[in-house]
Design a protein around this nucleic acid. Structure first.
Length: 563
RNA sequence: UGGGGCGUCGUCAAGCGGUAAGACACAGGCCUUUGACGCCUGCAUUCGUAGGUUCGAAUCCUACCGCCCCAGCCA
């Protein structure tokens, strides 16, 4: 295979992995994992991690495990597990038979904890939470040893067994790693590795009343699965010494390398699960899959394609510096994808009726139009035409500036794939002055859209036959927040930046008949308007609902805004 | 005043001692039966700042400055 593509430079993680392979680390094998906690829906930030982990594995003939980090049954649910699996698959990734749960390892984890106790490297601590915090010290002051730190191995073993057997109340005791209370890294100040928690676990039921903590579980799960590279976000950088301490102390046969990268931030949105949940719970959006939400399920319903998301993750790169990617980059990714793949259709969102006064009342005809301007493989279709049509309200201006080359009294424009028409008369409501309909004449010689005399017409309008159109509801979405960084100021509630106009519902839209057959899987361009997709959740038998995925670029709008 | 990171165009991001890739955005122009798409052109004499090493520094050294993360029995 030869290629003239510019060489895409490797990000720092791929560079590290390439080096490891070269040095035959882990025998040249690459195994990664995507480790979500099943306590919420996946968002586009997770997509970055998914593309990284599955991508890096695939590029190196490795595998990526799907592993649920389910160590906190008080927050986790089976329903989230299902939605997460669906989202990852939808994005186009396959974990084969490598589906795991941290809870699969509870027995092993317990045995490792016993081993730690026997080594004198872990102890049961009876300090109540408040006191434990005081003993931990502060960011600038060292902590103090717990009075329970020097319990004998026998006593620790006995106590830990009884913790497991349910002899003690929730929160009354914990198992702690014995490391260093004076460490500058607070994670190393004898971190808790097991807590007592009587909660029903979605997989292990009521088998356990003690659950291992993240820091202890994650590294061991990685080691058990033979993960080679454990990729996570920046905030875990401080945890790496603990990750390594657990594996070194236990001398696990496999010691994965944790590497941290910066999480994704986008302008005009929030990314934390907590804040997304708040938007849902407080009714600012219709749910986790509201098309304005940057959850995977919301994006999907909005009409984004898996390919566009993968491409987006590729474009934004990977580094350690914190950044905020312009929402325009995401929009560019979906436009690029859909420009190539979306069949074109015609739809009028804000209709004005237009009568062709010289077109015979009874006459109807079918006109051929290409489904794609550049790709003839996508074929053509027939669209009906008659005396009464709808055009876009924006496409008519009674007093138009010179640069406006759409319809205006006395001006001639082209109806896409149909005829050249000239506007003769504007009919208005006598009371309100509102335009009711436009009377135009068509040039019968211009069938298809060009005149035999070769005269040039600058403007081309989309239209729909009034007699044949199907009526629909169309939902237009705008950014959810009206500032670039809604949660940037700790003193301001991010919800005060919500964009009140993020959703506009248009109920009197007219679509070409072809669109009656569209499904949620069809990504369509409504010519001159944008890319749209049917919303199966909102559509009814009689009224289809379409979501606008993204607008087309609009340089006319730019011109208008300048003035 | 502790520990861990990060600072290259408006926004992302390459670069790893040999004289600043690419993408988005932006500005012009061409093309056009989508004011779309496509195409062309322009857009960091400069890499947080200040010194130093070197024939040569975004890259090495030193010192500053700025930003982010850490004191859950959350992940």
């Amino acid at each position: 295979m030869t290629t003239n593509e510019p060489i895409k430079s490797k990000d720092f993680i791929r560079a590290i992995i390439a080096e490891d392979i070269k040095n035959n680390k882990h025998g040249g094998r690459v195994t990664t994992r995507f480790p979500p906690e099943p306590n919420g829906f996946l968002h586009i930030g997770h997509a970055k991690s998914i593309c990284l982990n599955f991508g890096v594995a695939a590029e190196n003939n490795g595998v990526c495990h799907m592993r649920f980090d389910d160590t906190n049954p008080s927050k986790e649910e089976e329903a989230y597990v299902e939605s997460i699996k669906k989202d990852v698959q939808w994005l186009g990734f396959d974990w084969g038979d490598k589906l795991f749960f941290a809870s699969d390892y509870f027995d092993k984890l317990y045995k490792y904890a016993v081993a730690l106790i026997k080594m004198g490297k872990a102890y049961v601590c009876d300090l109540p939470p408040e006191e434990m915090r005081q003993y931990r010290g502060t960011l600038t002051e060292a902590g103090k040893d717990s009075p329970f730190r020097n319990r004998s191995v026998e006593e620790n073993l006995d106590l830990f067994t009884r913790m497991r057997d349910g002899e003690f109340e929730d929160g009354s005791r914990v198992l702690r790693a014995k490391i260093d209370m004076t460490s500058g890294n607070i994670n190393m100040r004898d971190p808790v590795i097991y807590r007592i928690l009587r909660a029903h676990h979605h997989r292990t039921g009521d088998k356990w009343c003690i659950y291992p903590m993240y820091d202890y579980t994650h590294c061991l799960s990685d080691a058990i699965e033979g993960i080679t590279h454990s990729l996570c976000t920046l905030e875990f950088e401080d945890h790496r010494p603990l990750y390594d301490w657990v594996l070194d102390t236990l001398q696990t046969p496999c010691h994965p390398q944790q590497i941290e990268f910066a999480r994704l931030n986008l302008t005009y949105t929030v990314m934390s699960k907590r804040k997304l949940l708040q938007l849902v719970n407080e009714g600012h959006v219709s749910g986790w899959d509201d098309p304005r939400m940057l959850t995977i399920s919301g994006i999907r319903r909005r009409g984004y394609t898996p390919a566009s998301l993968r491409s987006f993750c590729d474009i934004i790169g990977l580094a350690k510096r914190e950044s905020r990617v312009d929402m325009g980059v995401l929009e560019n990714a979906i436009r690029n994808d859909l420009n190539d793949t979306a069949p074109r259709r015609m739809a009028v969102l804000r209709p004005i009726k237009l009568i062709l006064t010289n077109y015979p009342e009874e006459q109807e005809e079918m006109l051929a139009i290409a489904n794609h301007p550049k790709n003839s493989d996508m074929g053509t279709r027939q669209i009906p035409f008659c005396r009464e049509i709808y055009i876009e309200a924006d496409d008519f201006l009674e007093e138009a500036p010179k640069k406006f080359f759409r319809l205006s009294p006395g001006r001639e424009v082209r109806l896409r794939a149909a005829y050249l028409i000239t506007c003769d008369r504007v009919i208005k409501d006598e009371q309100t002055g509102k335009i009711i309909e436009l009377h135009c004449t068509y040039d019968p010689e211009s069938r298809g859209g060009s005149a035999p005399d070769g005269r040039k017409v600058k403007g081309t309008l989309h239209w729909v036959s009034a007699r044949h159109a199907i009526q629909a509801e169309v939902r237009l979405y705008d950014r959810l927040f009206n500032v670039e960084n809604p949660d940037g100021d700790k003193n301001t509630d991010f919800k005060s930046h919500l964009n009140p106009n993020s959703l506009e519902i248009l109920t009197d839209c007219f679509l070409e008949p072809q669109l009656a057959k569209a499904t949620a899987n069809d990504h369509l361009q409504f010519e001159r308007l944008g890319y749209f997709c049917r919303d199966d959740k909102e559509s009814t038998e009689n009224t289809p609902v379409f979501n606008r995925t993204v607008t087309l670029r609009d340089s006319w709008e730019k011109v208008t805004k300048k003035k």
